[in-house]
Design a protein around this nucleic acid. Structure first.
Lengths: 239, 239
DNA sequence: TCAAAAGTGTTGACTTTACACCCATGA
DNA sequence: TCATGGGTGTAAAGTCAACACTTTTGA
């Protein structure tokens, strides 16, 4: 009895699907803010927009999500297609859904930031329209991509003091000086060397390799490697 | 010259739209995790799922995003439709996009948490399938909604010590005891009363009303009101 | 021997935690 | 007068910020 009565008011998934068809008309995309670091510059990988509306403007690397792939998988695919890398750190940041954000129609986009080592042997930029740009120099961009970039940069800032994600931007072996320069580039502030080294050593994120820098025109520093590098998007215990 | 050459390789938005049509087949929804607080219990507003697949299971309040509304507007609309409230705190948290998360087809959903005062005179739950549930008691839910709830709860935990958002859950006038109980309910820990009061008074979030509790079976406490209540989704300077 | 950066400790200010007693009210 | 929670201060521990000199290397 009550089962029958219940069934009358319940929809099956199949019926609901039909009644929802009108709504399957928003496209879903993923945009990757791919950060890198090289020669004391904090950089982001961008392409020139191929839309006439944004001719000459810089754009993030993104793509529509395929019907048969997870949202996270889409960002991994974009990374892989654009850089050849597949062991990357990816972090979802925010979804941007203003009606008019894309001139081609209604497209909402989920932004991820990712951190790659620009000098990774596997890194291969396939498209010669794609280049690294100094984050500090970037002004206008296509779509709402400047806002997306800023949001991701800000999210990264708030992560790096709490989580060992930053090592994904560095080579296997690095000096504390390099690490500090990178923190300063991302945070946009100067840090005291002694306090910085104290803080890092307390966090137990790096391991002394008993090796030294070579070919530096001054006293060489010790080299370290990341002890607890996070290589894939879940920040344990947070968010 | 270079303009013509450029144009050949540029797509217009109109042309791109057509080539993208195949992809307009992912539905986009918004789910609201509406938190409240009453009688020393941290609560969330849920409905019984109307899908046969999840019969009897609890579900968040959500809806498909309309083609002509912003993502954020959709969450405001859901809040308004379900609670009658329109001056609410809403915060986007995360977008969930696993392929199989919805039995009706491919639906990605953006989760927002919102904070409402359960005793607000304007609050009117329209649907009698919708009820407040103690967050601590909730086990299985429909879809991936338990995971969404947990993610939003965790995000709220990390916000409340830094930002004056919690007052959205309380009546206009409240005692510090009530405020502390609420913090403890959300954080799931006990707090020292003296230290808690010190911390709150340092933050300059509340204003002494020079009024006292009434009808309490013990010494009445002072009443306060929020000085810096944030009523709408942007957390300044963070994220 | 000079220039450049590496490496290292201490002090004071501030923040956080732990903790105990008296007070005001209603029953 | 009792039970209940309100209201308050201090001391110790820990964290953070500021700051200067010696060492090692290559040129």
């Amino acid at each position: 009895m009550s089962t029958n009565k219940g069934k009358l008011s319940l929809k099956t998934a199949e019926i609901e699907k039909i009644s929802h068809l009108d709504y399957f008309n928003i496209a879903v995309s993923v945009d990757c803010v791919i950060f890198g670091y090289e020669q004391n510059e904090f950089k982001v990988l961008l392409i020139e927009s191929d839309l006439e509306e944004f001719k000459g403007k810089l754009s993030l690397l993104g793509d529509l999500v395929r019907p048969d792939e997870d949202l996270d998988s889409a960002s991994y695919r974009i990374l892989k297609e654009r850089t050849g890398l597949d062991d990357v750190y990816l972090q979802q940041v925010h979804t941007f859904g203003a009606i008019q954000r894309h001139p081609s129609g209604r497209v909402i986009t989920t932004a991820y930031y990712s951190l790659v080592n620009i000098n990774h042997h596997q890194l291969k930029i396939s498209d010669n329209q794609v280049h690294w740009h100094n984050v500090a120099d970037i002004r206008a961009m296509a779509f709402d991509h400047k806002q997306i970039l800023d949001t991701c940069h800000e999210m990264l800032r708030s992560h790096i003091m709490e989580h060992p994600v930053i090592f994904n931007l560095l080579p296997e072996k690095f000096s504390l000086r390099l690490l500090q320069d990178l923190y300063e580039a991302i945070l946009g502030v100067q840090l005291d060397r002694r306090n910085f080294r104290k803080k890092i050593s307390l966090k137990d994120w790096v391991q002394d390799l008993d090796e030294m820098e070579t070919d530096v025109p001054h006293r060489p520093g010790k080299l370290y490697k990341a002890k607890a590098k996070m290589s894939n998007g879940t920040i344990t215990g947070v968010i």
